[in-house]
């Protein structure tokens, strides 16, 4: 078992024939991901990387039975692509695109929610179920199969954490990069619950960052709902206090989103919080023994 995706997942790629889309779709296929086709408007009927290209997501879904879409569409058009996927009945959209306008993502997320489509990202490395299915841009080989679920805001820190876990002789069930944009799809809470419900996952690693209050909310959620051991690291403990202009952001989040605040909240919720990013792997070993 795992969460969200596995070897039976049927994936289409939106922005399939572009440079990024082509490169990463190939890497995913090499990993073993079942990519069944792609969508690029006005290139329908072509074959690309040995897979059919469609003009619309609707046609692609009808022809292939795809249930997940991997999105590489440029920032100005990405919200449109997400909404098209939702409209076509896709279950999960993984949005890699960096630089999407916040207002666009706000509308796209609302529409996705209305249509019952889950989203991951934008501006994230994607999701991977170790040795089964990679839907994203992460280096697949560092994710060995195992019993640890991983949730992270940051891309390279996801790889660092996975690598440390695997170097301890452990492995990963599924790793999800949720992205750090103001509006994101699946967040800590939903994913923590999925890992809690996944019989194969025995421990969860949560990587956070300064800013916002998602980690604080996650801490509250863990306290009430999560029985499995959780290890956390918050990046940005030494980040300087940002120069600011107004106060509005701080008023709305009720705090300043510092690493110290988040670490304290997580510790209070029974999470094993490591101060050094080099101790993630060791901490996971400890909570599992």
């Amino acid at each position: 078992m795992s969460i969200l995706v596995n070897k039976d997942t049927k994936v289409i790629v939106q922005g399939f024939t572009g440079k990024e889309g082509t490169f990463h779709a190939q890497q995913c296929m090499d990993y073993g991901t079942n990519i069944v086709g792609g969508v690029t408007p006005n290139k329908g009927g072509m074959t690309h990387l040995g897979k059919p290209v469609f003009n619309t997501v609707e046609e692609a879904v009808k022809a292939t039975g795809a249930n997940v879409s991997l999105i590489f569409v440029p920032p100005a058009f990405v919200a449109d692509a997400v909404m098209e996927a939702a409209d076509a009945g896709i279950d999960l959209a993984v949005i890699i695109t960096e630089g999407a306008p916040v207002r666009d993502m706000m509308y796209a997320k609302m529409y996705a929610t209305k249509k019952g489509m889950k989203t991951i990202g934008p501006n994230c490395p994607g999701v991977i179920t170790a040795e089964e299915c990679k839907i994203g841009i992460m280096p697949g080989f560092i994710f060995k199969k195992g019993n640890v679920g991983l949730i992270s805001k940051s891309g390279t820190l996801t790889y660092e954490a996975a690598n440390q876990v695997c170097n301890e002789g452990l492995g990963i069930t599924t790793a999800v990069g949720i992205g750090g944009d103001p509006i994101i799809g699946l967040s800590y809470k939903e994913l923590l619950q999925m890992f809690e419900d996944d019989p194969e996952t025995e421990a969860i690693v949560m990587i956070g960052e300064i800013g916002g209050d998602l980690e604080i909310q996650a801490a509250k959620f863990i306290k009430e709902n999560i029985k499995k051991p959780v290890v956390a690291f918050i990046a940005g403990q030494t980040a300087p206090k940002g120069k600011r202009m107004g106060h509005a952001g701080a008023i709305i989040s009720g705090g300043s989103g510092t690493a110290a605040e988040k670490m304290a909240a997580l510790e209070e919720a029974g999470v094993k919080v490591v101060k050094s990013p080099a101790e993630i792997g060791k901490a996971v070993r400890e909570v599992l023994s």
């Binding site: 992270s152 805001k153 940051s154 891309g155 390279t156 820190l157 996801t158 660092e160 750090g180 990587i207 960052e209 300064i210 690291f233 990046a235 940005g236 403990q237 030494t238 980040a239 690493a259 101060k275 050094s276 990013p277 080099a278």
Partner: peptide, 22 residues
């Protein structure tokens, strides 16, 4: 010099953790 903002922040953190200043 680091790739990725999260790892870059984590690198500053570990430098401080080891007794240095980024």
């Amino acid at each position: 010099m680091v790739n990725g903002a999260g790892l870059a922040m984590a690198t500053m953190d570990i430098i401080k953790h080891e007794g240095g200043e980024p």
